[in-house]
Simulated assay, not measured.
Amino acid sequence: MEDIPDRRARRNAETKAEILGIALDVMAEEGVAGLSMATVARRLGVRPPSLYKYFASRHAVYDALFKRGQEGYLAAVGTPGEEGLRGVGASLEAGARWIMDNQVLAQLLFWRPVPGFTPSPESYAPAQDIHRHFAALIGQAVERGELHPDAAGEEGLDLVASLISGAITQQLANQPGVTYEQGRFTRLVPRLSAVFAAVYPPP
């Protein structure tokens, strides 16, 4: 039989998840920066002060969503299981697909639309894992002779991030309502690893 503390912890976790789900709906309707705790409380069927038992502030809700989003993006880019330059391309494509399926969270993660919001170290930790994931793939590509050793430096990692963010930013700015396959700019994503290799050709 479930203990009372365990039951309370489960209910607490379920309520937090429900709050975050409602918050995402509000952000989708009002813009990411338009999140209102009063609106979330009304949709949850409670008074606004009750929300603060679960999240200390509006920014705490953003922080929890930021962590959820980074974990989701990390899981996506790590799914293909490819190595080297092929792995870079597969991870970029998997990440782009995740972004197209999670556009509200992606705005919070990659475009920082909320004035004054800075993620906590705990919530930002998965982003560092993503950085290490791509660094490992590029390192493998260098070892295989697919890329110049300079590709494994910080400038190379910055270029990879810029290539994918540029394509996705153009896509969401111009065609946010289409699928990954239909996108004018997402269809360029499979070519990004070749662009990266052209900048850092093997010696």
Results as ranks from 00 to 15, higher is better:
residue 168 I to G: 06
residue 16 K to V: 03
residue 59 H to F: 13
residue 153 G to I: 09
residue 55 F to Q: 01
residue 38 A to H: 08
residue 6 D to H: 01
residue 146 E to C: 03
residue 163 L to W: 05
residue 149 P to F: 08
residue 151 A to C: 12
residue 165 S to F: 15
residue 151 A to R: 04
residue 86 R to K: 10
residue 113 P to W: 13
residue 46 V to C: 15
residue 143 E to W: 00
residue 148 H to Y: 09
residue 79 T to D: 10
residue 135 A to N: 07
residue 152 A to H: 02
residue 139 G to P: 02
residue 76 A to P: 00
residue 106 A to G: 04
residue 43 R to K: 13
residue 31 G to W: 00
residue 126 P to V: 05
residue 196 F to C: 02
residue 130 I to Q: 11
residue 39 T to M: 08
residue 15 T to M: 10
residue 92 L to F: 14
residue 194 A to L: 11
residue 22 I to G: 03
residue 110 F to A: 10
residue 132 R to S: 13
residue 123 S to H: 08
residue 45 G to M: 05
residue 177 G to D: 08
residue 155 E to S: 14
residue 48 P to I: 02
residue 161 A to V: 08
residue 174 N to G: 09
residue 93 E to A: 15
residue 52 Y to C: 08
residue 197 A to K: 05
residue 187 R to A: 15
residue 56 A to Q: 13
residue 70 Q to Y: 12
residue 30 E to G: 11
residue 47 R to A: 13
residue 144 R to Q: 13
residue 24 L to R: 13
residue 144 R to M: 12
residue 102 N to H: 12
residue 75 A to D: 00
residue 130 I to D: 04
residue 145 G to N: 06
residue 203 P to K: 07
residue 94 A to I: 06
residue 85 L to H: 09
residue 165 S to R: 15
residue 172 L to M: 00
residue 192 L to W: 05
residue 163 L to H: 03
residue 170 Q to C: 12
residue 172 L to V: 01
residue 28 A to C: 10
residue 93 E to M: 08
residue 97 R to G: 00
residue 178 V to E: 05
residue 136 A to Y: 08
residue 159 L to K: 07
residue 142 V to L: 05
residue 98 W to S: 00
residue 197 A to V: 00
residue 157 L to D: 03
residue 92 L to G: 10
residue 190 P to H: 04
residue 59 H to Q: 14
residue 181 E to F: 02
residue 134 F to T: 03
residue 111 W to D: 11
residue 197 A to C: 00
residue 22 I to Y: 12
residue 24 L to W: 09
residue 52 Y to V: 08
residue 185 F to Y: 15
residue 112 R to F: 15
residue 172 L to D: 00
residue 197 A to P: 00
residue 181 E to Y: 01
residue 70 Q to T: 07
residue 24 L to H: 04
residue 59 H to G: 06
residue 111 W to F: 15
residue 18 E to H: 13
residue 69 G to Y: 13
residue 72 G to D: 12
residue 30 E to L: 08
residue 38 A to I: 03
residue 73 Y to C: 05
residue 105 L to M: 14
residue 40 V to L: 06
residue 159 L to S: 07
residue 122 E to F: 00
residue 87 G to F: 10
residue 53 K to C: 05
residue 103 Q to I: 08
residue 139 G to I: 03
residue 149 P to I: 04
residue 195 V to I: 10
residue 161 A to L: 07
residue 52 Y to F: 14
residue 198 A to M: 01
residue 38 A to M: 07
residue 5 P to D: 11
residue 42 R to K: 07
residue 20 L to A: 01
residue 177 G to K: 09
residue 146 E to P: 02
residue 42 R to P: 06
residue 157 L to R: 06
residue 174 N to Y: 10
residue 90 A to Q: 06
residue 187 R to K: 15
residue 161 A to M: 06
residue 98 W to T: 00
residue 55 F to A: 09
residue 199 V to E: 09
residue 59 H to Y: 11
residue 38 A to G: 09
residue 115 P to S: 15
residue 148 H to I: 06
residue 27 M to F: 03
residue 21 G to T: 12
residue 133 H to Y: 11
residue 94 A to T: 05
residue 168 I to H: 14
residue 82 E to G: 13
residue 18 E to Q: 15
residue 125 A to V: 05
residue 50 S to M: 14
residue 169 T to I: 04
residue 185 F to D: 02
residue 137 L to A: 04
residue 167 A to D: 00
residue 45 G to I: 04
residue 34 G to H: 08
residue 4 I to P: 02
residue 67 K to N: 12
residue 21 G to S: 14
